[in-house]
Amino acid sequence: MSRPPIFLNLLKIQLPVAGLSSILHRISAVGIFLLFLPFTFILVLALNSEDGFNKATFFLDLFLVKTFLSLLLIGLIYHFMSGIRHLIMDFGYWSTLRSGKYSAIGTIFLSILFSLILIIQIW
């Protein structure tokens, strides 16, 4: 007998904002993991010598590098803010539906705000 089907079409299942916030937390973690290493190399390069520092500033002026740096910072800010929210929840706060929803919206809103400020600084 063939295996019975399972309905699990994520596009057809409603996801409350707290769920969206959780998925973004994971996506941001993957993004940070992938982008952190190349930028660590640039940091090491800049700290090694004057020549290295000049090379690093050259790299950081490139459009593509700036774009990836912006993405890294967005990921870091969101991951940090969402992590703080989780810590607060671990202490037993924001565990009602209403507070869970508004804390998730607040996390996303503050992350966008701080990201914009940093991105403006970079560009």
Binding site: L15, P16, A18, G19, S22, L97, G100, K101
Partner: peptide, 9 residues
């Protein structure tokens, strides 16, 4: 459980 509260909703 990562506290996304789908259950509560």
């Amino acid at each position: 459980c990562h506290g996304i509260m789908n259950c509560v909703s």
